[in-house]
Structures are given as C-alpha cells and as structure tokens.
C-alpha cells in the first residue's frame, strides 16, 4: 500500500471530518441562540437555491473541471430532461433514477 495513505489520506480525512462537524455544530448552536432580523432570515431563505446553483453550475458546465462543448457534454444534455422531471414530479428518487438513465442514454448517443 502507498505510504501516503497513512501519512496523508487518513490525517486529511480525520481533519476534514472534525472540521466539517465543528462547522455544522457551531453554526447550528450559534444560529439558534441569536435573534435574527427578518431581512436576514429572508436572505438566508435564498441561500439554499443559491448554494444548489453554485454546486450545479460547475458540475454541469465544467465536468472534470474543464469546458466541454454543450452537445458533447453528457451531464449537461441529461440535465435538461432531468430538470423537467424534477419540476413536474417533485419526487427526489424518481428524479435521481431518471437522471442516471438520461445520462447513460446521452453518453451512449455521444
């Protein structure tokens, strides 16, 4: 086995795990203690769509971190019918299953 697993991968895993938990826990505890003004609550209600957009944009437009022509990008092509399923069904599981099938078909057609 690569010694980097013990010397790098495992310590980074533990550090990221502990760090992620502290980020989640401290913000939740802190968030529940303070009185939040209405405008801030409204701003926070827009954080969810904005974060999901920020996660989706690069995943669809820059798969593997680089630009691919739209008609050669299976993820982007699959995203269009997947978005339609998501919008009309409002069903998490159905959308995921349909998305994987669409992506397989798109990958096959390209």
């Amino acid at each position: 086995m690569d010694p980097r697993i013990w010397h790098q991968f495992v310590p980074v895993t533990v550090a990221v795990g502990v760090g992620t938990y502290l980020i989640r826990a401290l913000s939740l505890v802190w968030g529940s203690r303070l009185a939040w003004p209405a405008w801030l609550k409204q701003w926070l209600s827009f954080v969810t769509p904005a974060v999901l957009g920020a996660l989706l944009g690069p995943a669809l437009l820059l798969p593997d971190g680089r630009w691919i022509l739209p008609w050669q990008n299976a993820a982007l092509l699959a995203a269009v019918p997947t978005a339609a399923v998501a919008w009309y069904s409002r069903n998490l599981l159905l959308t995921v299953l349909a998305g994987v099938v669409f992506c397989a078909v798109a990958g096959y057609l390209i």
């Binding site: 989706l56 995203a79 997947t82 978005a83 998490l92 995921v96």
Partner: peptide, 19 residues
C-alpha cells in the same frame, strides 16, 4: 460513469422542489 450523474440529479431535484 452514468451513476456519477446521481449527485447533480439530486441537487436539481432539491433545487426545483422548492425554487
């Protein structure tokens, strides 16, 4: 490779469920 699309599909669903 097709399975990796499960993550973006999940994000799309979560997004369009409420946005």
């Amino acid at each position: 490779s097709a399975l990796t699309f499960a993550l973006p599909a999940l994000f799309l669903s979560l997004l369009l469920n409420q946005a």
